[in-house]
């Protein structure tokens, strides 16, 4: 009986190898076929255009691209351009404050939410909602809120505090800080979610052990928990800084780069020069410098992450 069944199975098994190998070929090629269009598209439209931008930044292109190479003259012009330095300084202020405030607020909210409070789900969603909005919407909302004649200033004055002034939006020295307020409002809930996920991954008994060791709650978090969250901090800094560097829509919606060009960021500078001021060459040069900025953050980050993973 046994040997019969074995015999009858052998030819049946050996019959479909042709089909099987065709299927095997298909199986081996299918992922490549499916991925090919996106690889081509990203090669062409991301890396291709990056390369084109770099080439344009070496030319004297103004309203239309030209291919008269002028070396690094556009970069030299950029370095002598006062407006570029305003934009770059603004990016420094905006980036540092935005990343810093988001981390502190996000971590704080996450720690408070992690105390097993009631209605945590509702609060978590509430804090996370701003992230669901586009920066344009955030910009418009805060434009109204910060408008001295319509928003917070008008409201507080309406309550009777006639001397109350909150006009950062129209103050050239302070306009960049309104960008920070709006961006922090939008992104800190997201950072909170990152930290909360990290906190939830920490073994409960570690907190208990630290308590028994005599550490107060702030010290438990500072000495024991936060060091465990280093990867989360890294990811948050990484995500936030590239949001900061490419910030464009928020500036356009909230301040329009103004008053004057006092709240310009490199992205708005680049757009203004490349597309409305017929300075494609200089705009490209500024775009390449921004790319350099992103890479300067990205490369060390990836390096340290990959290295720690290899060690871990």
């Amino acid at each position: 009986m046994k040997s019969d069944t074995i015999h009858s199975e052998v030819p049946r098994r050996s019959a479909p190898p042709v089909r099987a190998s065709a299927a095997g070929h298909l199986q081996a090629w299918l992922p490549k076929l499916v991925l090919a269009p996106s690889v081509v598209i990203s090669l062409c439209f991301v890396y291709g255009f990056m390369l084109w931008t770099f080439i344009l930044s070496l030319t004297d292109s103004r309203m239309l691209p030209s291919y008269d190479f002028v070396g690094f003259a556009q970069y030299a012009r950029l370095m002598n351009n006062e407006r570029w330095w305003v934009a770059a300084t603004n990016l420094g202020i905006f980036g540092a404050l935005f990343v810093g405030c988001c981390l502190v607020l996000g971590a704080g909210l996450a720690i408070l939410l992690d105390q097993r409070i009631r209605r945590e789900g509702v609060l978590r969603t509430l804090y996370l909602y701003p992230m669901a909005l586009s920066f344009i919407v955030t910009g418009v909302v805060w434009k109204w809120l910060l408008n001295p004649g319509l928003g917070i200033q008008a409201m507080v004055r309406g309550w009777g505090f006639e001397s109350f002034t909150f006009d950062w939006l129209v103050d050239p020295d302070m306009a960049v800080y309104t960008l920070v307020i709006a961006a922090v409002w939008q992104a800190s809930g997201f950072v909170m979610a990152l930290f909360l996920a990290g906190l939830r991954g920490i073994d409960d008994s570690i907190l208990k052990a630290a308590q028994l060791d005599g550490a107060s709650l702030p010290r438990v978090y500072w000495r024991v928990v936060m060091p465990c969250l280093r990867p989360v901090v890294f990811s948050a800094v990484m995500i936030l800084s590239h949001i900061a560097i490419k910030s464009f829509d928020l500036v356009v919606a909230l301040t329009g780069g103004g008053p004057g060009y006092s709240s310009d960021l490199p992205a708005t500078f680049m757009y203004a020069h490349a597309f409305s001021r017929s300075q494609i060459g200089m705009g490209s040069a500024s775009a390449i410098l921004m790319l350099g900025g992103v890479l300067a953050i990205l490369v060390p980050y990836l390096y340290s992450e990959l290295r720690s993973r290899r060690h871990g």
Partner: peptide, 8 residues
């Protein structure tokens, strides 16, 4: 039970 050593 999980030792609860401070990982950092």
């Amino acid at each position: 039970q999980s030792y609860a050593l401070y990982p950092s």
